[in-house]
Amino acid sequence: MKVKLKVWRQKNAATPGRFETYDTPELNPNMSFLEMLDVVNEDLTTRGLEPIAFDHDCREGICGTCSLVINGKPHGPHRGVATCQTYLRSFRDGDTILVEPFRARPFPVIKDLIVNRKALDRIMQAGGFISVRTGSAPEANSLPVPKEAADLAMDAAACIGCGACVAACKNASAMLFVAAKVSHLGLLPQGQPERYRRVVAMVEQMDREGFGACTVTGSCEAVCPKSISLDFIARMNRDYAVALFKGVGARPGRAAAVPA
């Protein structure tokens, strides 16, 4: 099969970008979308053209590095998979496929389809941790965790931090990401000591980065490659409200430790 690719090309953050259209070489329908881009790039390189820059790493749906908005949907046409596990058999021979980078003010384009998602890292640095001594694993039964809490925390921890929720949201809101991270730690006993300080610090870092607010459209949940539930956002909203009632403030020392 062959497809026509309409791809966003942009030299760097300072240069304006534009769409370029490429006819692909012959493709195997069982290639992943990223493998297709590899083949296209090989072809571009042999023709002396600049290959298309795109983010990728594990290519098995667990690292959260791949991105792309394919025909208007982050991570392509299917539910619950990342771009790396989207295959060409999901498209028809001769299709024109529109490929864009994730669009959000906190995600500036680095080159072509690669955007800078460090804003999400800074949110994690603001509160996405627990302060315990690391070392050898403690005896598992010394800290009882209810099965329901463990399951729910695991559902939240499935977030790979790819930023598709931001890309899909009409407000470019990062609430689903932040909610997953807040809930993952807040549901477990190890996360309790910093539970309310964490939610305040992470939400405020999210606001500082310039992400939008939640209108509860549910688009984030629909495009999330890990199908993270909107219920976690409600959980984060509840924790933040409780933190306000408790008068919890981010420790100045902690906030200052966050690199700008």
Partner: peptide, 24 residues
Amino acid sequence: LNRAARPQPYASPATAYGSTLASR
């Protein structure tokens, strides 16, 4: 705030993945 969070819109037509008309 929400408008400022996405200065550059998508080229593809607005999609409604999982969202209702009322919510948008």
